[in-house]
Design a protein around this nucleic acid. Structure first.
Lengths: 129, 129, 129, 129
DNA sequence: GTGGTCTAGACCACA
DNA sequence: GTGGTCTAGACCACG
């Protein structure tokens, strides 16, 4: 899996890294239980500091996407936190509301938006139908 | 229109303000051509620094949501045209992709996501059907 | 409020700092809404690095004990997460179980343990009777 | 007696193992003078390194919970006497103080805490009444 | 002036 | 060899 960071971006490096890994998991590029590179390896590979990778891993661990095993480093968690009936978090809802508002103001029709969502959802490996 | 800012939020104040105004426009609480409060008025009302409001207005102007006339202050732009063939901005697409990935990993089905989007879209005043 | 860290301890500095602040809040040495020292001030005062204090503050923020306001730095949260009927977290229960086991094996009677708990609880400013 | 370790836990394996054994003794699952598995047996059984088990045993020996005889392996110590006048170790007291502070801040009443302690104490086999 | 981020390099506990 | 912690010093966004 290829990870590319934008050094000039406003988004912090550790957050970009987190996002890329989440996308990787959702798209199936990273399988559950799959071992991730060590902190040092990834830091070298990306040309950034150990602590930056460390912070990203710690964040992903805290959010439940990664499991960190003292013996073998970091690996992808098993999926399905099994949200009983998948109530979307309030935070997600608010972010989505803003996004829809921007899309609507830019002239995107509801239908176009739906199609865009579908297209994106289909790129995800982990589907819940 | 009521604007509420969360001082303790991660999101910068000027960005929260920008977001609230965009939502206001999309929901029809702010009409096209409607005049907004002056920087000072709004800053006083919200209890924040002038520069913060200024920054939000400048950002909204740059994004095309506001028109700023030195004589008459800031007012809401005329809406964009419908984009039937609609190329959603790349930034929007990337943000949406990440959001979908997180939603999927949290167990939200594509169908639930679609319904959520529809519900939100229906709250918007500016519709493009 | 006086904070003392043990440099020779096995407990990480940032965690010691977190613990001291939690104790301070519980004992009422730090009042709700009270402003804490800035990261730099506290780091200087304790003779440790900024990032160590930063990490402690970030942890306390994440746990809900502190609120970080971009304008005025860190302050103590309002209490009462209002646990409906205060179901003790499973983690607390497990830690307590181990502690009781150790106490029992060291010959401490149940009654002594109860009295010890009462004595400690009475030192706390925030009581729920 | 069943021992389960969590590889993904923050708590070091040797410490988890120590804790489980202490709980086993306190609950009476391990009787005084009872022989424990050899280091190798237990390491194999749990799928962990010999050194890890070794470290746990050494720690338990140092704390007085185990007696290690080179010829007969490790066995459970005889219980301590009742401490009627009982000075609880300072370390125990500090850990308990932090725990109470966290519990209080999370809205747990003193009474609930007491009841929880009683319930746990009753699960222990070694009682000092 | 505040916290947030990042670096380069170091040491330590764990396994 | 792994992640976790810490340091000293730097730059930046926010307000």
């Amino acid at each position: 899996m290829l990870i590319s960071l934008k050094l000039e971006s406003e988004v912090p490096l550790y957050e970009q890294l987190r996002n890329e890994i989440i996308l990787g998991i959702a798209k199936g590029l990273l399988q559950p239980e799959e071992k991730l590179p060590t902190v040092r390896q990834l830091a070298d590979e990306l040309g950034i500091n150990n602590m930056t990778v460390n912070k990203a891993y710690a964040l992903l661990k805290q959010e439940g996407y990664l499991v960190i095993d003292r013996r073998h480093g970091a690996k992808v968690s098993l999926p399905f936190k099994k949200q009983t009936s998948a109530a979307p978090s309030e935070q997600l809802e608010q972010k989505l509301e803003l996004m829809v508002a921007e899309a609507a103001l830019q002239g995107l029709t509801a239908d176009s938006f739906h199609k865009l969502c579908s297209a994106i959802y289909n790129k995800m490996h982990i589907l819940h139908n």
